[in-house]
Amino acid sequence: MKVVNRIITEDEADLRLDRWFRRHYPHLTQGALQKLCRKGQVRVDGARVQTNTRLLPGQSVRVPPMPDVSRPAPLPDPDPMLAREIEKMVIYQDEHLLVLDKPSGLATQGGPGITKHIDMMLDGLRKEGAERPRLVHRIDRDTSGILLIARTPGVAAKLAAAFRSRDVEKTYWAVVVGRPTPGSGIIDQPLVKVGAGGAALVVPASRDEEDASSAKSEYETLDAAGRKFSWLALSPLTGRTHQLRVHCESLGTPILGDPRYGGKAAHPEGFTDRLHLHARQLDIPHPAGGRLKVTAPLPAHMRDTFRSLGFVAGGTPQPERIKGKGPK
Score class of each variant (00 low, 15 high):
Ala224Ser: 02
Ile139Gln: 08
Gly252Pro: 06
Val90Gly: 12
Gly197Pro: 02
Leu122Met: 09
Pro76Asn: 15
Ile255Phe: 03
Gly270Glu: 04
His24Pro: 13
Arg274Thr: 13
Pro112Val: 00
Gly263Asn: 07
Gly31Asn: 03
Gly58Thr: 06
Ile187Tyr: 12
Lys325His: 13
Asp11Gly: 15
Ser104Arg: 01
Ala224Val: 07
Ala73Phe: 03
Ala199Gln: 08
Lys170Leu: 12
Val155Trp: 14
Gly154Leu: 12
Ile149Asp: 15
Thr152Arg: 05
Gln243Thr: 02
Ala215His: 07
His137Glu: 12
Gly185Lys: 09
Gly46Ala: 13
Val312Thr: 14
Phe163Asp: 11
Tyr219Asp: 01
His96Cys: 04
Leu15Pro: 10
Gln93Glu: 14
Tyr92Gly: 07
Leu222Asp: 04
Val168Ile: 15
Val44Ser: 05
Tyr25Leu: 09
Leu148Gly: 11
Gly239Asp: 02
Lys228Phe: 14
Arg164Met: 09
Lys39Met: 10
Lys328His: 14
Met120Phe: 09
Lys2Asn: 10
Lys323Met: 12
Val202Lys: 12
Ser104Ala: 06
Leu232Asp: 01
Gly178Phe: 09
Phe271Arg: 08
Arg164Cys: 15
Lys264Met: 08
Leu28Gly: 14
Lys228Gln: 12
Arg71Tyr: 10
Pro57His: 06
Pro112Glu: 13
Pro103Arg: 10
Arg48Lys: 10
Asp14Tyr: 13
Ala224Tyr: 07
Ser308Arg: 09
Gln109Phe: 02
Leu33Thr: 04
Leu277Lys: 11
Arg280Asp: 04
Trp173Ser: 10
His27Thr: 09
Arg38Met: 13
Leu309Asn: 07
Asp140Val: 06
Gly270Gln: 09
Gly315Phe: 12
Pro72Ser: 06
Ala196Lys: 09
Glu131Pro: 13
Ala150Leu: 04
Asp123Lys: 00
Val192His: 10
Gln189Thr: 05
Phe306His: 15
Asp77His: 02
Thr253Asn: 11
Leu15Phe: 03
Val61His: 03
Ser250Asn: 08
Leu251Ile: 03
Leu277Arg: 01
Lys2Gln: 15
Ala161Pro: 00
Lys325Ser: 07
Val49Cys: 14
Lys158Trp: 00
Asp79Arg: 07
Pro64Lys: 00
Val136Pro: 03
Ala130Glu: 07
Gly178Leu: 10
Gln30Ala: 11
Val136Gln: 07
Gln34Pro: 01
Asp140Ala: 11
Ala215Val: 01
Pro319Trp: 15
Arg280Glu: 02
Phe229Asp: 00
Gly46Cys: 15
Ala199Leu: 15
Ala47Cys: 11
Lys228Asp: 13
Arg6Asn: 01
Thr316Val: 11
Ser144Leu: 04
Ala205Phe: 05
Asp14Gly: 05
Lys193Val: 09
Pro327Ser: 08
Leu244Val: 04
Val90Arg: 11
Gly314Met: 15
Ser144Tyr: 05
Gly129Ser: 07
Glu210Asn: 01
Gly40Cys: 01
His267Gly: 08
Ser308Cys: 03
Met89Thr: 05
Gly113Asp: 13
Leu97Cys: 08
Ala265Asp: 01
Val3Ala: 11
Asp79Pro: 00
Ser144Trp: 14
Gly46Thr: 08
Lys158Cys: 08
Ala233Lys: 03
Asp167Pro: 06
Gly58Trp: 07
Glu220Pro: 06
Ala150Met: 01
Asp223Trp: 01
Pro285Lys: 02
Lys325Arg: 15
Pro26Ile: 08
His278Gly: 08
Val192Glu: 00
His247Asp: 02
Asp304Met: 04
Arg321Asn: 01
Ile284Tyr: 05
